[in-house]
Design a binder for these strands. Structure first.
Length: 495
RNA sequence: GCGGGCGUAAUUCAGUGGUAGAAUGCCAGCUUCCCAAGCUGGACGUCGCCGGUUCGACCCCGGUCGCCCGCUCCA
């Protein structure tokens, strides 16, 4: 599971430490905690929301501060037909069965896929002995079987004839049940079937349906992209691993519209861009990898798909998908809405449906990845020179919730007053934090634990020459600079 | 959804059938000229929730919710 030498137990402990620090210091709380919590739901506390906003801002800047990418913020609720067109109504409702004997659960289509030819033949014979009693070609068997399982009724009948692959018992399956992974709700106060809408299971469709609106409003020509950050909802069977698998999550998506034939090249370009983004924000390169979806497991819309995976304490997990969605979505919306989704190329006088390269990053997941990646336990000398444990979040300064802390070295001789003045000078520009409580060493460590990159200390020399010390979180080295130059100093480091 | 583990202060944990402790953290004051120091004082838990057994339950039993691990799932 993991590539380093740590045991699984250590990995679990590491995760638990991060979760408890996240709570103690106000990064992440359990949702509705006083009521016992709500499965798989989490709240971002004061530091968490700050860091999450920084993360989203970095993404937004890197993706939309471009000539050919426009922003969008589409509604979470969309016309129900959108989800028929997108394939979610069809594909998000997989019928499943449980084995009553051994409690294993199967998706029906997977159960059928794993069936041997002989077994398929047996099933067909049992259903229609006359037609399939004699010799049949293999192709015919496969074909006829495939035809049969397309209707829910027949599929349900067949399942009851099959043995459980796990325990081998026959006739132990429950009735097939549908699991709709989309959250359903109602528009207006009356709960009738005509008012059903869904909470979007992905933000992408809000972009696709607005493709021509954005294109004409912004006067963009192909190739160009539309970027959006927003919440999406999937009614997962299980939540898992802290923020990793939740039912409510936030996506940072960009759909890039290109001329067919140029899609492969664009796909590679965006793969490079997206991987570099994580590296530039300080994520450990060795803990990042690409995972290519096998061709036979591709989603219904995709021609090629790669995931950016991060090595979490519980193993590799997807934090972003870069997919070639082809013209699937636009074509389907054209078909379902009756409105043209085609693009007219003025230069070549061609009219065509663009291909789409999708970069879909999980804001919540990458938040967690950055949190996990930056957590360190180090040895550091204390005042007596003995080594002590130092917990430090080595977040990239751009992501750190607090950019600088301001400390009067001691609470007298005008140091607090000078510090307060400095604080109010910096506060309009940076998220700063004033702390005069306890020994200065303790204050440094408190900031280390939440990833504050710089600590500014006002000492007796400050009162003489208006210089302050700036202590670097990672090296713990101090440099003395003029207090009047602090704004520029920090701006340079944080921009 | 299944199986296993767990749920006591903000955190990590101890605890006994007779209505609860430690350490760390936090707050206030003193001290302190640079890396979790020291001193004094202080706040904080109806022991996840509901029910049952009992004269009496944090402790026993049942249910439920939540978290973690494994399986399943993750178009």
């Amino acid at each position: 599971m993991s590539q380093n030498s740590k045991t699984a137990g250590d990995q679990v402990k590491a995760m638990e430490k991060i979760v408890s620090l996240a709570k103690r210091r106000g990064f992440v709380f359990q949702s509705s905690e006083i009521y016992g919590g709500l499965n798989g739901c989490w709240d971002y506390g004061p530091l968490g929301v700050e860091m999450l906003n920084n993360l989203k801002q970095q993404w937004w800047k890197s993706m939309t501060y471009r000539e050919n990418v426009e922003g969008l913020d589409a509604s979470i609720l969309m016309h129900p037909r959108v989800w028929e067109a997108s394939g979610h109504v069809e594909n998000f409702t997989d019928p499943m069965v449980d084995c009553k004997q051994c409690k294993a659960r199967y998706r029906i289509d997977v159960l059928f896929d794993d069936l041997s030819l002989k077994k398929k033949k047996d099933v067909l014979r049992e259903l229609d002995a006359q037609k399939f009693g004699g010799q049949q070609k293999d192709e015919t068997i496969i074909e006829e079987f495939a035809k049969l399982v397309t209707t829910d009724q027949d599929a349900a009948r067949i399942v009851l004839m099959l043995p459980c692959p796990n325990c081998g018992n026959k006739g132990t399956f429950t009735e097939a049940r549908k699991f709709n992974l989309m959250f359903k709700t109602f528009v207006g106060p009356v709960e009738d079937s005509s008012s059903v809408v869904f909470l979007r299971p992905e933000t992408a469709q809000g972009i696709f349906v607005n493709f021509l609106n954005v294109q004409s409003a912004s006067r963009q020509k192909l190739p160009f992209g539309i970027a959006q950050i927003g919440k999406a909802f999937r009614n997962e069977i299980n939540t898992k691993n802290f923020l990793f698998r939740t039912r409510e999550f936030e996506q940072m998506e960009m759909q890039f519209f290109v001329k067919p034939g140029t899609d492969v090249q664009q796909f590679e370009y965006w793969r490079g861009e997206r991987m570099q983004w994580y590296i530039d924000l300080g994520m450990t390169e060795e803990k990042l990898q690409w995972h290519q979806h096998p061709k036979d497991k591709l989603a219904h819309y995709a021609k090629d798909a790669y995931d950016v995976e991060y090595l979490f304490p519980f193993g590799w997990g997807e934090i972003e998908g870069v997919h070639n969605r082809t013209d699937f979505d636009l074509s389907r919306h054209e078909q379902f809405s009756g409105k043209s989704m085609k693009y007219f190329d003025e230069e070549t006088k061609e009219k065509f449906t663009p291909f789409v390269i999708e970069t879909s990053a999980g804001a919540s997941r990458s938040f967690m990845a950055f949190l996990v990646d930056s957590y360190r336990e180090e040895e550091a000398p204390n005042a007596e020179g003995a080594m002590e444990l130092r917990v430090v979040m080595k977040l990239h300064p751009k992501l750190s919730p607090i950019k600088a802390a301001i400390f009067p070295l001691v609470n007298r001789d005008g140091m607090p007053e000078f510090s307060r003045k400095l604080e109010s000078d910096l506060r309009p520009y940076f998220r700063v934090f004033y702390d005069d409580s306890g020994a200065v060493g303790r204050r440094y460590r408190r900031q280390d634990e939440i990833g504050t990159p710089y600590c500014i200390t006002i000492d007796s020399q400050t009162l003489q020459d208006q210089t302050v010390t700036v202590r670097d979180r990672d090296s713990m080295v101090q440099e003395r600079i003029a207090s009047t130059g602090l704004k520029e100093y920090l701006a340079k480091k944080l921009m």
